[in-house]
Design a protein around this nucleic acid. Structure first.
Length: 853
RNA sequence: GCCGAUGUGGCGAAAUGGCAGACGCAACGGACUUAAAAUCCGUUGGGCUUAAACGCCCGUGCCGGUUCGAGUCCGGCCAUCGGCACCA
């Protein structure tokens, strides 16, 4: 392949133009106030999800979204916009740290090398990034501001009255630390003693570590949390007006998981204490025949009777040995244990037993439920197994069917979920919705409960026991945390030569004894921030990446935000996009930003599969390296193929012969302007001439302008390329090629194949000068509708919806004329013979449909 | 289980409710060439009738509906992919 003759000399022209662009700073976007800034132009901010620079380098999946945004960026520049199109590196991350543990090479070195490789690849593809805005999240000049933002969050609280984050100083309660948006809490984590580290849920399989198979236990550890739950309501509401795929919005809404219901207090029999439960079905309160507490619920200790103490302790030990994955395995049977205690159902006054079971989760609601077995499949399953009473409180015809598993037997059962309340004196006869409303009013009057809203969203566990991350700008003095002054930022991680976990649960930073000691009385926080931190605000830094006074200059932020188009993979549909929105809202509330949402329009590109239709991976040996493709076909062909494969958002397999087809198309464009002489050199083609395009050619030209323009706006790049292929096919056989047609084609093609079009433009301009003489200074062409009109068009004649003939008529033929022609048509008469014509439907310029019985 | 997306030739795919398969790949035939590559031209959804079709029938996962007309709209299934998953 490599010794194959190139279809056109992309290997010469592509590096040439890449160098030229860089020398001319062609894609540098000046900020307001900077030399060269033109305030008259509209702004356009088009952003890619920046990559983690892994050792493997770019694969063909990355440049799919990057090419799409590059086309939009180049198109917007033609349209006269100030375009912000930046790129940077999400550089903190586990792989570099693990490499450091294995080899001793500092993550910073690994990261720097990987970035260099990524950057080389991106540059070779010819993306029009403003490289002067490049940022790296692991650069102290960057993470100084990540730490600063953390302190903004730390020094804020959520005021429920205003529904906004406010400086902690406006909080008048007794303990500000209890309301900070960044706080410390003991939370259960997956701790692997053998590996000496905490593991993510996904790294724990059947209670053992994925690596090594060592036992993992759940153990509470002191962790930093961010109070994202305070923003749950706004994260749902303010999602609504955004131009995002509906599916992604839904994913976020479901993740936040809002449910409305009531909190109900049950008094514990014989104790001056109550248990609060959350329920979405307060209307079934009379049917609550038992209660369940989560095993971790602290109430368990206080209410378990002496007779049950041992059984309860055993059960809790059993549960804590399970991983989250095991515990939430739906295929397993429900388990539980009786606490020995009873509570009073506030509605019926009945004494109901209090059980402990792990199907109730401590992290949701109050960590306790009322069991309504007659109208909840989970409660029914549990009640059946432990022989608890089942009382129906809803009547009606509608039922739902599900399967339950009791004592190893699967049974299909039917339950009534909606209907009319029965056996419920306060609400008897009321349909479910009304019953809910009325019982809540009653609960509130009696002081037994109140209306409330619950979210699935949990606060964000924000600390990691790692080396390669942002250190917290926090010190500990006498067991209390406090912020370090802004003047001490950036707080740089200490130098270490051993990056391994310490084995005690203490983060690796504990090894740097001198660094840890902040003063006589204070020591530094040892945890680091998770990888998400840097990517939570990078789009803001791009607006003003070299600012040393602020995380982003006020004017720059006001000018560039929001992001007009954000393209990236669905894998970030929830976490990254939710976290970034959360930080953005805090900064907005505190008056640092001008917008309350960061990303106006979001598009997810689909995954590119290997040629075998499988996901690209080393394991299958089907990974494609962009540089290999570019070596054989050039960057323009690579870019165009990535876009020609199919719709941007769709999953699609790679095909090398497909690349070849697109490469042939570009070579045909080349040969419209150049031809090979006897010596095998490329010389200017004599067919190119300053002549007027024919009427037919004008139609092709203007159809292409219209279609390519519309398709770029709609991100439908595959069909835009198809239209340009039609253009080129129409001109390849032409005796003489009008210069104006070529100029139009080259501008349309430039966003897709910038090198080829720039080179041909230059060649053309040297023979037929035009002002301005640079392709990038051209206006985007406008189509003229008059050239698209055909005087004679072909329409279809149908009988009962089936095409029976095609005829050519005048474009402006009236409905009456068309009907007359159709009725007289020989083929139509053939198919309507001996039948009654019921109706004739005429769609001018399209078809005539004759309806017979 | 719940939610979402997708389903069209041998393949990637096009089609504001109006002529299904644009454009490209692959395949086949031809031109150019001593030859090959490259390039250019042509054919290419399936079936039937036929000497040949420019003739007829079928065809957008399956079943039904709305409509003069459905790949497109509605209802019900099936399959594949993705997300969530005891959330009370």
């Amino acid at each position: 392949m490599s010794d194959r003759r190139k279809p056109y000399p992309f290997d010469l022209i592509e590096p040439k133009w890449q160098t030229l662009w860089e020398e001319r700073r062609l894609f540098h976007a000046p900020n307001p106030g900077e030399p060269g800034f033109d305030p008259a132009r509209p702004k356009y901010y088009v952003l890619d999800m920046f990559p983690y620079p892994s050792g493997a380098g770019l694969h063909v999946g990355h440049p799919e979204g990057y090419t799409a945004t590059d086309i939009v960026a180049r198109y917007r520049r033609f349209r006269g916009c100030n375009v912000l199109h930046p790129m940077g590196w999400d550089a903190f991350g586990l792989p570099a740290e693990q490499y450091a543990i294995r080899t001793g090479q500092h993550p910073e070195i690994t990261t720097r090398e990987n970035i260099a490789h990524f950057k080389k690849q991106l540059k070779r593809i010819g993306f029009s990034y403003d490289w002067e805005r490049e940022i790296t999240t692991s650069d102290p000049a960057y993470f100084r501001w990540t730490q600063w933002i953390f302190l903004q969050i730390y020094n804020s609280w959520f005021n429920p009255e205003t529904r906004r984050a406010e400086p902690i100083a406006t909080y008048s309660g007794p303990d500000p630390n209890s309301v900070r948006l960044a706080y410390v809490a003991e939370v259960p984590v997956n701790w692997c003693p053998e590996l000496g580290t905490v593991l993510a849920n996904e790294e724990v399989i059947d209670g053992k570590s994925e690596v090594g198979g060592f036992p993992v236990v759940r153990r509470p550890m002191r962790q930093w949390m961010l109070r994202i739950t305070a923003f749950a309501e706004r994260l749902i509401d303010e999602l609504e007006p955004l131009d995002w795929p509906e599916g992604i919005k839904l994913l976020q809404r479901n993740w936040i998981g809002k449910s409305e219901g009531a909190e109900v207090q049950f008094e514990i029999a014989g104790k001056d204490e109550t248990i609060a439960v959350f329920t979405t079905r307060p209307d079934t309160l009379y049917g609550a025949t038992y209660m369940v507490l989560a095993p971790e619920n602290p109430l368990v200790d206080r209410l378990t009777t002496n007779e049950q103490r041992e059984a309860v302790a055993n059960y809790r030990a059993q549960v804590s040995a399970k991983s989250d994955l095991e515990r939430t395995d739906l295929a397993k049977e429900k388990t539980g244990v009786f606490s020995g205690a009873y509570a009073t159902n506030p509605a019926s006054g009945e004494q109901v037993p209090i059980w402990i079971a792990d199907y109730v989760l401590m992290g949701y609601g109050t960590g306790a439920i009322m069991g309504v077995p007659a109208h909840d499949f989970r409660d029914y399953e549990f009640a059946l197994k432990y022989e608890l009473p089942i009382l129906e409180v809803i009547a009606g015809d509608e039922t739902r069917t599900d399967e339950i598993l009791v004592n190893g037997v699967r049974t299909g059962i039917e339950l009534r979920l909606d209907g009319v309340a029965i056996h419920s004196p306060l609400i008897d006869g009321l349909p479910t919705a009304d019953a809910k409303r009325k019982i809540i009013v009653w609960l509130e009057e009696q002081g037994h409960g109140h209306r409330t809203i619950n979210y699935k969203l949990r606060d964000w566990l924000f600390s990691r026991q790692r080396y390669w991350g942002e250190p917290f700008p926090v010190v500990w003095r006498e067991g209390r945390h406090e912020a370090i002054p802004d003047s001490e930022l950036p707080l740089v991680p200490p130098p270490l030569d051993d990056f391994k976990p310490t084995g005690t649960g203490e983060p690796p930073l504990a090894r740097a004894h001198d660094w840890v000691r902040y003063s006589e009385a204070a020591t530094r926080e040892l945890n680091t921030m998770p990888q998400w931190a840097g990517s939570c605000w990078y789009y803001l830094r791009f607006c003003d990446p070299r600012n040393t006074e602020r995380f982003v200059g006020k004017e720059a932020e006001r000018y560039w935000m929001n992001v007009d188009l954000y393209v990236g993979g669905t894998e970030h549909a929830v976490l990254h996009l939710l976290y970034a929105r959360f930080w953005h809202k805090v900064l907005f509330d505190l008056g640092h930003l001008s917008t309350n949402e960061p990303f106006q329009r979001l598009v997810n590109q689909g995954i590119i599969l290997g040629e075998d239709g499988r996901k690209m991976s080393k394991r299958w040996g089907n990974v494609i390296d962009p540089l290999d493709v570019i070596a054989d076909y050039g960057a323009d062909a690579f870019r165009c193929y990535e876009m020609f494969m199919g719709p941007l958002e769709q999953m699609k397999p790679w095909s090398m012969t497909g690349v070849e087809g697109v490469s042939r198309f570009l070579a045909r464009v080349w040969r419209l302007v150049m031809e090979e002489n006897q010596a095998g050199e490329w010389v200017f083609a004599p067919a190119v001439a300053e002549i007027e395009p024919t009427r037919a050619q004008l139609k092709v030209i203007h159809a292409a302008i219209k279609k390519v323009t519309q398709d770029i706006e709609a991100l439908s790049f595959n069909t835009a390329i198809a239209q340009m292929m039609i253009f080129v096919n129409a001109f390849t056989t032409a005796e003489a090629v009008p210069v104006t047609a070529l100029r139009t084609l080259l501008v349309l093609l430039n966003p897709f194949a910038p090198h080829l079009s720039s080179e041909l433009w230059e060649t053309l301009a040297s023979r037929f000068p035009i002002a301005p003489n640079e392709i990038t200074d051209q206006p985007w062409p406008e189509y003229q509708a008059e050239f698209l009109i055909e005087h004679e068009i072909e329409i279809a004649l149908q009988v009962n919806g089936k095409v029976r003939d095609r005829i050519t008529v005048a474009n402006d033929a009236s409905s009456e004329e068309l009907e007359k022609i159709a009725r007289a048509n020989e083929r139509v008469r053939e198919f309507t013979a001996n039948q009654t014509i019921r109706k004739v439907v005429v769609i001018p310029q399209k078809l005539v449909n004759v309806v017979v019985n």
